[in-house]
Amino acid sequence: MIELGQHAQYIVGAWSGVTLVTLGLILWTLRDAANQKRRLEELESRGVRRRSAKTDSPS
């Protein structure tokens, strides 16, 4: 481990805080995206579609 001097706790604290918040932001964004995708798929599986959506009509 690199020697960070007498103020190591401030350096480690700053980097740890930024890592936690950044990871939290990434995870929150991914979770929200997955939730919306799931809700959209649930609606479409129940036959609720946009009017502009292509339908699987027999030819």
Binding site: E3, L4, H7, I11, A14, W15, V18
Partner: peptide, 14 residues
């Protein structure tokens, strides 16, 4: 500032 300059690498981008 010694090693505390390494805080700058996360402070300034944010």
């Amino acid at each position: 500032m010694g090693d505390t300059v390494r805080i700058m690498y996360v402070h300034v981008p944010n």
